[in-house]
Write a protein that binds this DNA or RNA. Structure first.
Lengths: 232, 232
DNA sequence: CATGGTTATATTGGATCCAATATTAGCCGC
DNA sequence: GCGGCTAATATTGGATCCAATATAACCATG
């Protein structure tokens, strides 16, 4: 019985917040686009107050930028910004991985393996959304064992801030295959409790992602110029 | 017209946000204390709407925690939390310092030196508030040269989150003297563009702070138990 | 034709009001 | 006296309304 799965949040602001996050990751709210409060509020069937509060959270997280009296726009990341985010992730995830590798329980390992299976299944189905979700679950199942909640929060934030740019990476079958390969190696390193190897594998994993983003956003030949532009 | 200074009154939410930050750093809003919206709004002479928006920003930054239908409380840091924050700062500030040391202009160096002088003057005056302000200016004058805005934002956040606990460190003359000594060494390393030494000095600087906090918050003999409790 | 100013419109910012829920106080039965 | 139930109160959550300001449209003028 599915029962009361994914019960709607207790407060409207949380519902709005989740909706906004989803809209940003799917590209419905494109980077750089202004957020018309009246429009969004009406679409979600709520007033502007909870919407504004949700926007403030995203502002505090850096997901949107606020221009007084002019409104909110989705934060736009240049290639330079993306590189910076990945560099910071490098520093923080290495620490988290080292701290986590010795603390993961068997149940944790099972969750990592399950997420990995889900990633592969979603990949074969070609379901990008499910793939990004499972991929996130995979990584945080590992890092989550570090026992450093603030560190995890920051890392989660960094992931969020690049969500709008992540799906483009999974668009090619070659990248998807590489992700699978690298995930298997990462899982093996976790099982062996080999911190050094784990950190190294995660680093190359990220490097591949940033290299792909570099090609897509600012390719040498200049075919495409900007971030994924999603028409309505 | 009287001077057209850029200090025109910003939006109310920004005024409220600054007030809240100040109240947290001074301890007027103590860690763990609930934030009564009606009371705070009335004291600031504003309605609850901009207050709630400001609180949402602080929530996104992790400065306050939000319990649906129950309100906001100032985030409380255990000793473990403080250690975690300083560990993360370790990782991020080392990176920022390395990136900054080669990019600082002469004007930047002058600002660092000026901040250092201000720290010493405030210390001799015994003005703790001015000392924490100048200390912050000193450190960010150095780190600010890194050219990584997101990294700086995160570091700033980490500083904010421990502001309520910082002033206790400056309470003893011994600690104040040590800060001066270490600042001079740090400034010298910056002037020499010696990244390795700078990173090392910053690390011991932080270590001393966390050691002092450890003594104050959880001393071996157990004279004091909790965070700085500031009566009205 | 360009440009500057003026009005009209759209959009955000903030305050007040009402509803929903949590907290407390009081009461009853055991 | 103690635990649990119920009513009264306090506090937060959300919607609507009005004010302040930015943006767009328009017209006059050089």
């Amino acid at each position: 019985m599915t029962g009361l799965r994914s019960a709607r949040p207790p407060t409207v602001q949380q519902y709005v917040l989740e909706s906004l996050r989803a809209a940003i990751t799917t590209g419905e709210l494109a980077p750089g686009a202004p957020i018309r409060q009246d429009t969004v509020a009406e679409r979600l069937g709520v007033s502007r107050v909870p919407l504004r509060e949700a926007l403030k959270i995203l502002e505090g997280e850096g997901q949107v930028v606020y221009l007084p009296r002019r409104g909110y726009i989705v934060a736009e990341l240049s290639l330079e910004d993306l590189v910076e985010v990945y560099r910071i992730r490098d520093l923080l995830e290495s620490e988290a991985a080292r701290a986590a590798v010795g603390r993961l329980t068997d149940a944790d390992l099972e969750r990592v393996a399950e997420a990995q299976r889900d990633v592969e299944q979603a990949a074969t189905r070609g379901d990008l959304l499910a793939m990004t979700e499972a991929n996130r679950r995979f990584h945080f199942a590992i890092l989550g064992g570090c026992g450093m909640p603030r560190l995890l929060r920051i890392i989660r934030n960094l992931w969020d801030s690049t969500d709008a740019y992540r799906s483009v990476y999974y668009n090619t079958t070659a990248n998807r295959a590489r992700v699978e390969r690298e995930h298997r190696a990462i899982l093996a390193a976790v099982r062996r409790r080999d911190a050094d190897d784990l950190v190294r594998l995660l680093a190359v994993h990220r490097d591949h992602a940033v290299a792909a983003l570099r090609e897509i956003i600012a390719p040498p030949d200049g075919t495409a110029r900007r971030a994924p532009s999603r028409p309505e």
